[in-house]
Amino acid sequence: MIRVLVADDEALVRAGLRMILEVAGDIEVVAEAQDGTEAVAAVARHRPDVVLMDVRMPRMDGVAALREINRSPGPPRVVMLTTFDHDEYVHAALRARAAGFLLKDTAPRDLIAAVRAVAGGGAMLAPTVTRRMIDAFAGRRAPDVHAARERLAVLTGRERQVVHAVARGLANAEIARELAMSEITVKAHVSRSLAKLGLVNRVQIALLVRDADQDPF
């Protein structure tokens, strides 16, 4: 069972997240918090596996709370939630070592998938966030095309198709439809590709593909 803490200053949002998550069957919401200070205390008290935390909360915001949580021994994985995908929130959350960043309008099944992914050691970013991060970083970095292509050469043909779709910011469900495969298979390809490439999240995959300046596979 995946133990989750939900932190948001709106009671209706917390209730909605609890309802969505507990329908999954393998997820239990063990505590709620209405601000960052309560979230930090609840993590120490309940030791959740995953924290879903709003970025903007009173007393202590989500990013400050994330920093405090990550200073504790064996911290949980934290996914930041917001109604906005402003760059400053994304950058601050990722710098503070968030395991994911999702918009609050994320579909219920994608929210559940994100919790499962980060609980298993993975990372999850909303597709719109992925696209914006790719554009932001690509403008600041001079790519080593040859090195990037050599790294991607370790992937199978199907894995290359999947990572190219990831680089375009597609979610797993969209990739599955485009490549005529199941979402489970897409997730497996993404996980294997991350392992082979020594990467930790989809943004890193997308940046590597962009550096390689790949034509569609």
Rank of each mutant, 00 (worst) to 15 (best):
A65D: 11
V90Y: 03
A39P: 02
R149E: 00
A180H: 15
R109I: 14
M124V: 15
D87Q: 14
E178Q: 12
V30G: 07
F84H: 15
D105A: 14
G122P: 00
A24H: 13
S72P: 00
A136M: 14
A173R: 15
L111R: 11
A167K: 06
I134T: 06
E183N: 12
E22R: 09
A126T: 04
R158W: 09
A167S: 15
T106N: 13
R56Q: 13
V115Y: 11
P127I: 10
R158P: 02
G74H: 10
M53S: 07
L199R: 04
V55N: 02
L155E: 08
A99C: 09
R109E: 15
V78Y: 04
A31M: 11
N70V: 02
V30F: 12
A33L: 09
L155N: 06
L152S: 02
G198F: 05
G139H: 07
M124T: 10
R192K: 05
I112Y: 13
A98L: 10
F217S: 05
H189K: 01
V43T: 05
A98D: 06
L111V: 08
R210C: 01
A147F: 06
T128V: 14
F101C: 08
L94W: 03
G62I: 03
S191M: 01
T156R: 08
A41N: 03
